[in-house]
Design a binder for these strands. Structure first.
Lengths: 135, 135
DNA sequence: GATACTGGTTACCTCAACGATACCGGGATA
DNA sequence: TATCCCGGTATCGTTGAGGTAACCAGTATC
């Protein structure tokens, strides 16, 4: 079995709300990351995906299953056990996620800085006079 | 001046609705692509972005300006002229867009095939018996 | 009995993105 | 006078992703 997931693997302060790249739905990229090391159970996924409701996690996983990104295996045991695992196709998304994370590491600070500067500026005139002059 | 934009540079049949990667808002990636070759005017952008309403295009461009991805330069001339241009930060998104497009070229057919297969299948039982026994 | 655990389902609500349509101001042109 | 062009605004409506809360079956344990 693989190691348990770090409940804090996703920084709640640096959410995808800021970065301009999204893979699939809101949680898809995080699910991919959670499944990188091996199959995981439903409740196992819920832990690091803090705040995700079972409904939304189910929706996400169903959509990923539909698209061939994960497989769902339910074992008729007691207590019930369901495992989700990345397919090779889903695994191919890891490169993309890595690219997005690389971009963020490199450029997100500049973006946030630009945003902060813009928000705090007194909205200077957006007009450039013709090359003559100005009063 | 740069060459005019091809009004059909974006295939209306292969929209981003299918592919699981999104850069910024709905139109952001396309705007980046449109600005790749040089500055463009508002109406110039509207043409290849078929169907975008001026309101939404304005929203997109303002958001990109806020994030330091484009610069907006308005010339006080007649008729009015406004030019949008990629900043180096905006230009850095080109790599990401290229990565997303590469992934799509390589893997999107498999995803769509999986989706079609899933949608047309009679939803086989999602239950797997415990591995110990047989029937 | 009562409660808890697993892997969900169902009904309802909210909010922001997106879109449709119409309109505007200021020249220049006819 | 009227119309066109450009770069937008204003107002309205739709849509859907996502969230909240409650509930479920089956077993097991208290």
């Amino acid at each position: 079995m693989v190691e348990p997931l770090d409940p804090e693997m996703f920084d709640p302060v640096c959410p995808s709300s800021a970065l301009p790249v999204q893979i699939g739905d809101k949680w898809t990229a995080m699910v991919v990351l959670c499944l990188e090391a091996g199959p995981r159970r439903f409740t196992e996924l819920k832990t690091p995906l803090r705040g995700v409701t079972p409904k939304v996690l189910t929706q996400t996983l169903r959509a990923m299953e539909r698209d061939g990104l994960v497989t769902r295996t339910a074992y008729d045991e007691n207590p019930p056990r369901v495992e989700y695992e990345l397919t090779p196709l889903g695994r191919s998304l890891l490169d993309l996620v890595a690219a997005a994370r690389a971009w963020s590491r490199e450029h997100l600070p500049a973006l946030l800085e630009a945003r902060a500067a813009h928000d705090s500026s007194p909205h200077a005139s957006r007009l450039k006079r013709s090359p003559d002059s100005r009063a």
